[in-house]
């Protein structure tokens, strides 16, 4: 007997490669989306800071915009710089 696989359709779930499950700002899952978004993934991506903390991009932008003077990571209070 010879079994040939003609095609294979698998099922997978995607997830962000991050050191935490939830966004530290909105407390929602990274794999979900921030409270303002409807669709996860491409439409609500994550960003990493140089301090290695990551957030939903919309969450951290909102946070940074609300800060008057210096922009800090809400988790570790270091200066926030986007990781290149």
């Amino acid at each position: 007997m010879k079994v040939t696989i003609k095609s294979w359709t698998g099922v997978a779930t995607w997830r962000w490669v991050a050191n935490d499950d939830n966004c530290g700002i909105c407390r929602m899952a990274f794999d979900g989306c921030c409270p303002d978004c409807k669709l996860p993934g491409d439409d609500c991506p994550l960003v990493w800071g140089q301090c290695s903390h990551c957030f939903h991009i919309h969450c951290i932008m909102k946070w940074l915009n609300s800060q008057q003077v210096n922009h800090q990571c809400p988790m570790c209070r270091q200066d926030w710089k986007f990781k290149e």
Partner: peptide, 10 residues
């Protein structure tokens, strides 16, 4: 063989 995937948001 060709493989395709259904990629879901868990």
């Amino acid at each position: 063989f060709p493989a395709t995937a259904m990629i879901l948001s868990a």
